[in-house]
Design a binder for these strands. Sequence first.
DNA 1: TCACGGATCTGAATCGTTTCAGACAGGATA
DNA 2: TATCCTGTCTGAAACGATTCAGATCCGTGA
Lengths: 360, 360
Amino acid sequence: MTGRKQSRKRGRVTLADVALAAGVSPATVSNAYNRHDQLSAELRARILETAHDLGYPGPDPAARSLRRGSVGAVAVLYSEYLSYAFLDPAAGHFLQGVARAMDEAGLGMLLIPHADGRSPVVSRAVVDGFILRSMPEDDAQVTEALARGLPTVVVDGPERAGLPFIGIDVEAAARGVAKHLLDLGHRRIAVVSFPLTSTPRSGPADLDLQRGATVRATRDRLSGYARALEEAGLSWSEVPVYECAHNSPEDGADAARVLLGHDPRPTAMLAASDQLAFGVIRAARALGLKVPHDLSVVGFDDVGPSEELGLTTVRQSHFDKGLQAGRALIALMRGEEVEPRSLLPTELVVRGSTARPREG
Amino acid sequence: MTGRKQSRKRGRVTLADVALAAGVSPATVSNAYNRHDQLSAELRARILETAHDLGYPGPDPAARSLRRGSVGAVAVLYSEYLSYAFLDPAAGHFLQGVARAMDEAGLGMLLIPHADGRSPVVSRAVVDGFILRSMPEDDAQVTEALARGLPTVVVDGPERAGLPFIGIDVEAAARGVAKHLLDLGHRRIAVVSFPLTSTPRSGPADLDLQRGATVRATRDRLSGYARALEEAGLSWSEVPVYECAHNSPEDGADAARVLLGHDPRPTAMLAASDQLAFGVIRAARALGLKVPHDLSVVGFDDVGPSEELGLTTVRQSHFDKGLQAGRALIALMRGEEVEPRSLLPTELVVRGSTARPREG
DNA sequence: TCACGGATCTGAATCGTTTCAGACAGGATA
DNA sequence: TATCCTGTCTGAAACGATTCAGATCCGTGA
């Protein structure tokens, strides 16, 4: 193959050129590419050969999409500041799941990282549908995506009437893991939270800030924790909550250092994710504290090295979420019926990072 | 004028409908969206309002792309079987880098996982350019991508005349890390390798298999190791090389279990990636061996928990690779000059997972 | 007064496919 | 023989936008 690189933008070889050279109609060339049964095998072979000789790159995808009305790709909108994109194993599993679904259907996936404010990418994305994952409730990009009027599936929020929703019962799961600590006898508990707003910020978060949390999954974690603690007779307003700018072990460690400086020191820590929990454990150890002897730690997600590290956490399958979201979107695009709301199971996984408090 | 209009065929509101409703020409509506300076602010406001009232979702991206000749997105082709997609932190950092570059330019990125054989996704992807990352030398998808004749940048291979290449000097780096082990006095060294072909397979790999490695980066690692060992007077053909089906800690552990069963037992292990090295360490510990006392282990990449685990490895910045690749592609798409070949630095990072062999 | 230039807006030609309703043979069917 | 298929191939109309060369209007400077 003598594939000479031709950067002639204008002088592109089109389907019509191939038709002319092969002495057939454009319709036939199109059929040669798309509907093999519409012409004889010999003619098809001849056309394909002519096309190859001319250096025809095949039907132009944009023109094809315009005429057919479909593109063969879906967009995934994810909030960078929550998932810390590709570096968060939870996001990785999720995308892996979506990718599998797209693979099954021969579709591509366009990734669109969250940007604060409008972005030309969302309104100009050449796609057939959207998957929204853990986006803020009131977000310019979400609004733009919805304005496109394309089939859309929501994962973990924001829930919207008419859009299929896939997620877990975050509040119940959060309540469960908090209850686990309470049952062990912990009473001085601190919380390491996801970012609460779109503006990255680290620091203590009062009730107002907590209530203003823009991402659904974040709010529900906090309210689940709160419910468990209040049910145990504790006052949530006195529980220290620390907001992390990013969902990373580093930020979790920073939070832990601050929270462990409180007097009296917390005996247990609720981290909104395993990523944050890893940081908490790291910081605790650096301070000479034994986990779980001096400090119990729980996470959320059950991803990455949480098994190796013996982290007590809430298991959920991000892969399944992605897979189901992908399949639901594909069904939606095909005009099929889709379950309007499906909740995946979660499970409390008790490992070695939690124990009765020392004094208990 | 054409009084007969069946524009509701797909139930879609088009730019023409808005023009009609607003009493202006389609050209003006288009200008309202794209060239704000071509009409008065009042008219623009009125048009946008009309559009909103009609539920017009904005210019159709496919039509826009067709007419403009550009799309506003690039495709990233990555080999699933090498990077294990999103779960490999190296791939994550890389994509993060690409995403940053795309963000700078307001472009989207379409991810296309490697599939063996042709895939409709590559030839139908509505994009302006391609980034190829660590793809097999002779691959159907690569061929298809190149056939598109779009601006293309290659990362880590396959190198092709005319395509900008971004990578590292893999062979030199591999030789360096192997030499580190030799300098410490190791003579019984085993190798844990990436998959060698597109067909997932785990098991010992003889010289023929090694030479047939389809991915450039894999071949170069092996040849770098080989060169160092032979320079030290060892015979490469006697060095056990174990191929892993996937680049994961699990596979690395499997490989290590087999290799550690050899008699005499290797005193050091060269892993093609940190991911594999993590598995090696895990397996060694499970067998009651102390790292580095009983077994020295080195990795490649310096990602994930390699610092925590004290892994001696080769540092390279996957993020920078992605960023540079993204920027190079954007420059290419703009018709600017691009460095035809740029090698990023690597650095041997010596940590606690390597030491002199016991007997030494 | 008059040509001139700038600000606005429009008409009509594309962009490169796909699709649908035929057209045309030639063989099978009745 | 007349009719009906069936398999191949074609003509021409969309698909929904952008663009570019004008056309119009109007204030200005000479």
